[in-house]
Write a protein that binds this DNA or RNA. Structure first.
Lengths: 121, 121
DNA sequence: CCTACGCGCAACCTGTAGTTGCGCGTGGCC
DNA sequence: GGCCACGCGCAACTACAGGTTGCGCGTAGG
């Protein structure tokens, strides 16, 4: 996993940003104040997060008079979602392998959960 | 999304923990020192992360003499991966809707990307 | 022109990730 | 049995990122 991908991952998985993206995706585009109105933190905090997302190329910024409209960048954000799904699936594959192995061991020797002798004290 | 799910999400998505889980999944089970040997941070940092994962129910802890073996809890971790995939898919659905909408608008009126009159200065 | 609003910048606070240092218990060796 | 070595957890400290408040600038609108 490259360096840019790491930044992408960190940008979308951070809890605050995740909620922010939820709202922004529901609207397609919005201003910082509008976003802050639906989120549990202040406009400035929102603005910081938007700066991070902007730096990661996940959203676009466009001035319109005294307002600023932020909009999602579908292609780039799609890359992020795919990265998440890929990672999750890779983990799941490992998980199934481990689970299957544990079960087969259990069948072979049901008493071997504690590998040696576990002295209670 | 519930409170426990939030803790689950935070536990797995944190960058340090993500790398740790990668190694732990590759081995199935391991001791803190063994994990620290393959990770970019110290044994104590690993130990802290393991404590968090343990608190989230994602791994199990078992003393074996003077060592401690941590092992992944397949079912619980599977829940986490599913949560990630679900979130990613939900975003992707929104994304496609937005992208489709933008394209249809573009077809209807190719010059309407700037909604009103954008004064350059 | 003057007011109101939206925004960004800067200073500050707080929690968490990461480090180093130390003490305790267990295993192996003589 | 006694001693050293190793693995581990606890505690104190530092560094950084998320979040807040306060302020100043520019633009919109009467």
């Amino acid at each position: 996993m490259t360096d840019a991908d790491d930044r992408l991952w960190a940008a979308v998985t951070e809890p605050g940003r995740r909620g922010l993206l939820d709202v922004l995706l529901a609207r397609g585009e919005a201003t910082p104040t509008a976003l802050a109105a639906e989120l549990p933190f202040t406009r400035q905090a929102v603005s910081k997060h938007l700066a991070v997302l902007l730096g990661a190329g996940l959203i676009t910024r466009q001035r319109e008079g005294r307002e600023v409209r932020y909009a999602v960048e579908p292609d780039r954000l799609h890359d992020a979602t795919q990265a998440m799904i890929t990672a999750a699936n890779r983990w799941d594959a490992r998980l199934n392998a481990i689970k299957g192995l544990a079960e087969s061991l259990h069948r072979a020797d049901p008493g071997s959960e504690h590998h040696r002798a576990p002295p209670p004290r």
